[in-house]
Design a protein around this nucleic acid. Structure first.
Length: 350
DNA sequence: AATGCGGGGCA
DNA sequence: TGCCCAGCATT
């Protein structure tokens, strides 16, 4: 048996029963593919179920306000995926009369759909023979064929794209693609794979050379940036607060947050008042009282940034312009960091 | 060609 | 702690 036959045979007996399998309807396939970009199945699954329930069709998704889409996406990260998902739904609904493009090239035009996702949808839904190349595929191919080109550099990406096409099974492309990814996720795992139990064992170049632990090769990524965030949680006379939308570019674009002042380091208790104007919010200067909420900064780690976050309670004697009742602040799409604070402050303060 | 973009799980 | 995850858009 050659490579693709082993993958297909393995897939038939090991495939997980997931809700987007056993369908060729592009809507759930597309939704799952977007959600699973850089995201584990276990993390994306509940979001998929939630979205399918709220938006049974692409038309339902297109008709929703972006804020509602972001709220449902809250916690899944990489929020541009949600905004692009929504934009693509509008395109499909309004320009394509609710029908998905049925070719790789057509799918590629949709916002948020790149080479991987176009290959996945076109192969699974329309049997177009395009190989998917994701993190799983890089790992399996680099090991089985003993390729040590960096998978995150252009030359390596071109090489693996070509290799992937050469070894695919064009006749059963949908199952082959899903099988190869499933194989990477369950058998050819990143660390300490059980090569003794691998159906490809005999033909694996990495096993033969004793280099399983070295492959795939990845170029080091840039270090993380450290930032200091001071969130001002205004509480006015009528127990209302202020939430503003983050307009990009940058992290959490499209999500809401409390007035924010960034500083060069952790701000002492007697230093916060001088920073209030930095939030650019009228009325904060009239605060009777500004109290640090968390004694030590909350360290919120993102892939590319480490945030040291302090929340400050800003008591206002008057009435705040454009404020939202504290009882309703939970309905806004916010970063996990803000959601956690809202939950804590609700339990400990009010 | 390089960089930025979340959050969670695991050894 | 560092690495990885069904990648993409932007520069």
């Amino acid at each position: 048996m050659e490579f693709s036959d082993v993958i297909l045979a393995w897939y038939r007996t090991h495939k997980r029963d997931l809700p987007w399998r056993n369908t060729r309807d592009p809507y759930p396939i597309w939704l799952s593919e977007i959600m699973l970009q850089q995201t584990r199945v276990a993390q994306g699954l509940p979001y998929f179920l939630k979205f399918m329930e709220h938006f049974p069709t692409v038309g339902d998704l297109a008709a929703a306000p972006e804020e509602e889409v972001l709220k449902l996406w809250q916690g899944l990260g990489y929020y541009s995926r949600a905004r692009n998902l929504h934009a693509a739904a509008k395109t499909i609904s309004r320009e394509y009369e609710g029908n998905f493009p049925q070719t790789y090239e057509g799918l590629l035009k949709l916002k948020g759909v790149g080479a991987y996702t176009a290959a996945a949808i076109s192969s699974i839904c329309f049997q177009e023979p395009n190989p998917v190349v994701d993190g799983n595929v890089y790992r399996v191919l680099s090991r089985y064929f003993g390729v040590d080109l960096p998978v995150n550099a252009p030359e390596g990406m071109r090489y693996f794209a070509k290799l992937a096409r050469e070894v695919m099974d064009a006749e059963q492309i949908g199952d082959y693609n899903q099988g190869l990814m499933e194989f990477g996720a369950l058998q050819c795992v990143p660390r300490n794979p059980d090569c003794a139990a691998c159906p490809l064992g005999g033909g694996c170049e990495a096993v033969r050379q004793g280099r399983v632990g070295e492959l795939p090769v990845k170029l080091p990524k840039k270090g993380v940036r450290t930032r200091y965030f001071n969130y001002l949680f205004p509480v006015d006379r009528e127990f209302r607060t202020l939430l503003t939308r983050r307009n990009g570019p940058g992290i959490w674009e499209g999500l809401f947050e409390f007035p924010l002042v960034e500083s060069g380091g952790v701000v002492p208790e007697d230093g916060i008042r001088a920073l209030l104007p930095g939030a650019g919010i009228q009325g904060l200067g009239e605060a009777t009282d500004v109290v640090r909420f968390n004694p030590n900064p909350i360290i919120h780690k993102l892939s590319h940034q480490h945030l040291y976050v302090t929340f400050w309670i800003v008591h206002l004697p008057g009435s705040l312009e454009g404020a939202v009742p504290i009882s309703q602040m939970h309905s806004y799409p916010v970063p996990v960091l803000i959601a956690n604070f809202m939950e804590t402050v609700k339990n400990s303060y009010f």
